[in-house]
Structures are given as C-alpha cells and as structure tokens.
Design a binder for these strands. Structure first.
Lengths: 213, 213
DNA sequence: GTTGCGATGTATCGGTCCGATACATCGCGT
DNA sequence: ACGCGATGTATCGGACCGATACATCGCAAC
C-alpha cells in the first residue's frame, strides 16, 4: 500500500521524505493518519534498491558553490524512474483482496485520476460488495444476537451499520457516474464545473514551486 | 488493544481461541475485521505467561473416561484470573493517545458496560476532540488546497468530512446521554426499554451454553 | 547578540498485528 | 467409503507504527 502511494505521489513531482509524508497526509487525510517515518524511510530505500525510484540531486542551478569539507547531507530528493511508472501501473491495475479494505481502497481511490475507467469500475464494485457483506454481518448480529449484547455494544453496531449503508449509497452514486462517463463529482455537492470529455488527465501542477536552499 | 479485548471477553465467560475470535468479530464487527490467529495465539500465550489468564480444563463432568495414550490435545479453554481482572480494570481506566484512534476507541467503547461513567465521559470527549481535529484538517484541505487536487481525491475528502461530522454528532448525543445518566440508546433508535437506574451491570448471560465434547 | 524554540529533515528499533500456510479432527451427506 | 466444510491450534515473514535520537535553520524575545 505504502509502495503504491509513494510511487503515485512521486509521479506528480519529485519529493523528499518529509514532503512526501505531508502530501500523503493531505491526499489520504480522509482515510488514515499520517504515515510513520518508521515505515516511510525503509520503504524509500526498498523502492530505491528495486530501481523504482532514484535520488535526484537538488538545485543544480549554479555550480560555483564548492561542496567543501562539511559534506552537507541534508534532504534527499527522490524521483520516480521509468520502471517505477511501470510498477505503479501494474499495482494500480491488479486488484487483490487488500484492494477493498479501508486503507487499500482509499489509496486506490486517491489515484483514480491515473486509473483507467474499467479498473475504476471494478474497484468500486469490489468495494461495494465488501461493504455490503459487512453490512449484512452487522444486520445479522443486530437481529439475531441482540439480547446477548449490552446497550453500548448495540449502539456501536447501529452506528457501524449506518456508516455501511451510507458508504454503499455513496459507492452506488460513484458507480452510476462512472458508467455514464461523467466526472466523479456527485450532483448536489457544489463545485460542479460542468462538462469534461476526457477523464484521466495527469492532474494539473506538474511544475514545481521553488524554495531557497 | 488485543490484550484488552481478550481480557474483556474472557471476563464474560471462559473460551478457547476459535470461539474468542468469533465473539470478538461479533462484538467488534462494526470496527474492524476479525482478528488474525497470527496475533491471537501469541497474545494468549503472552497473557498466560503474565498470569492474567489460565487454562481451564474442559468438561470435568465424568472422570471415568481414561485419557489413555492418544493424549487428546484439542481445544484449549482459557479463563481470566483475579490478576487478569485487575489488569483489565487498569487498562480500561488509563487512556493513552491510542485510546482515541479508530480501533482503540472501538474496543474501549465495546466494554463501556464494564467502565465507570467518569471514564466513559473522558473517552467520549477525547474521541470527539480527535475527530474534530481530523474534520478541521479535511476542511482546510478542501478550502485551501482544492485546486491542487483532482476530482476523485476531492470527492474522497468530502466523503471523509461527512463521516467526521456525522460521528461528532453521534458522540455529542452519547455525551449528552451520559451526562444525564441515561442508557446509551439514542432517542429514536427503537429498542428503548425505558428506565434503568444503575448503569454498569455485568451484562446478562454469565451462564454458558453447553456443547457436546 | 545570543539564546532558545518550533519547524524541517533523516534515521533506527522494538513491538503489534496481519495474511498465508500447515495440519489434525469431527460431523455429515452421498 | 469417501470427501468436504466447519472446527481448532499453531508458526512465519512482513507491513506498519510509536518512540526516540539527532542535526539544521529561521526567527523572535531578552
């Protein structure tokens, strides 16, 4: 999962670890808390060893500054390689069971703009199926085992059931939109910017902000 | 977390691993998928080594059956010890940061019937605070960084924001109920069985069903 | 002017939990 | 007699987390 997320983000622009973590938190804030450094840095090294990413030397603007003795380690900027892009495409397209759990689905969904429509549909439907199963499980417990459970546990189940029903409805809408080839924005959610023929443009902002080194 | 859940369940009745997993799935179905055996069995041994639980020999009904040679391993039933109950009480009362994340909160909530009111209130408010923070983060992203993100990512944030707002309202209701000393059942959720002076009875069904061994 | 502090930044370690896998028994239908 | 799905215990490698350590930079307060 982390691997997929990193590859996806680096495809938008080169970044160093710290920045990667922040962007990840912004993109996946709805799904999960910020990624831990204890996972991030080892994974970066693993990806580098596999050849999916490389170090990009930072700010080669003027070559006059002599590196001198104090070797100035500091931030390490990574960028994705051609093999990395292939790997990303492969990870996005193939869907295992983990693609449909909370985190897996969230990460895949966050990169739907780089996913072809058939795959999007497949993932949305797989997720719906999984949530429907969870929903049925909760209904069963509430219907058949209610007397065995205390009021708090029951309230928890009810809240969970409600969340499931809500998510299924959300997915239904997304699936309907997907089938009719429209943009993902649900009707009535504001920010509807009208027509768009081509879904799937690598999102805007491929250029990058500068920071004084 | 697993430790707390196991201790809590064994307090209701002795069980073996398989059963524990099923009960856990029923009780926490709204929160998370079934626990893995890869965590369950090692944890059981850890708890046993610490003295919180012990093996309870199964079905001592008739002592006539000679164990004979084939030593009949089979299921291992565990029961909680006095020290285990103390440990449980301690874990329930003390709230670290992990008490307020999704899983942690779910487990604590599932055992609210064994938790005193002050602690319940503290946990509900801590959870609310945490969700409010997540909500503010999502609002920030939607307000300030919307143009940097593609339509799918935005839709994800919107859905997450909605879930946050909903959970905050749910928590508000629970907190209000808690303060007024009522049972947890929200008004309008059916199953309101009227007055109850004493919250905190060890829930019904302390006796146990029999299965032919 | 220096001192301290919060943000930026990289890195490791131990621990928790998961997913796959293996294997043995039991009840039951065919 | 056979198989097959549910029951049941167990281990292993790997993913990810939380705490911790440490170094630099900008800047505000004294």
């Amino acid at each position: 999962m982390l691997e997929l997320a990193i590859l996806g983000l680096l495809q938008e622009s080169p970044m160093h670890g710290y920045e990667l973590r922040k962007e990840l938190a912004a993109k996946l804030g709805a799904i999960r808390a910020a990624i831990s450094y204890g996972s991030l840095y080892p994974t970066l090294r693993r990806l580098q060893a596999a050849g999916w990413i490389t170090e990009a030397d930072e700010a080669p603007a003027t070559a006059e500054e002599v590196p001198a003795l104090t070797s100035r380690r500091g931030r390490v900027v990574y960028k994705i390689t051609a093999e990395g892009k292939e790997r990303f495409a492969q990870l996005i397209a193939q869907a295992g069971p983990e693609t449909y759990d909370d985190t897996g689905f969230g990460v895949h969904f966050a990169f739907f703009a780089r996913t072809d429509q058939a795959t999007r549909l497949r993932i949305l439907e797989g997720r719906r199926r999984k949530i429907e199963e969870r929903r049925e499980g909760l209904r069963d417990v509430l219907a058949r085992a209610a007397e065995r459970l205390d009021a708090y546990t029951l309230e928890l189940q009810r809240h969970g059931l409600d969340a499931c029903e809500r998510e299924v409805r959300w997915l239904e809408e997304l699936i309907a939109n997907e089938r009719s080839g429209r943009a993902p924005t649900a009707p009535g959610s504001g920010t509807a910017d009208g027509r768009r023929e081509d879904t799937n443009p690598p999102p805007p902002g491929e250029s990058r902000k500068e920071e004084r080194p």
